[in-house]
């Protein structure tokens, strides 16, 4: 029961983090459209790292 709640909290945190990454990346692309490629790659990497954390929590919590 508690592990499920913990996993839920971590997934909420991951969601907030992904939102931040996506939002900031969009902002920076809007500011510097010529750097869009680099920003996208960095965004995907950070997103993947975060996703790994959230999925890890999900698997361990289950």
């Amino acid at each position: 029961m508690y592990n499920l709640i913990g996993a839920g909290i971590i997934v909420i945190g991951g969601g907030i983090g992904l939102g931040q990454i996506g939002g900031k990346a969009m902002e920076s692309i809007a500011r510097q459209p010529e750097a869009a490629g680099k920003i996208q790659t960095a965004m995907i990497i950070i997103g993947a790292l975060l996703e790994g954390l959230a999925f890890g929590a999900l698997i361990l919590g289950k």
Partner: peptide, 11 residues
């Protein structure tokens, strides 16, 4: 390695 394996598997 754990995050690598879990990411692909879970996705």
């Amino acid at each position: 390695p754990f995050s690598l394996l879990v990411r692909l598997f879970a996705n």
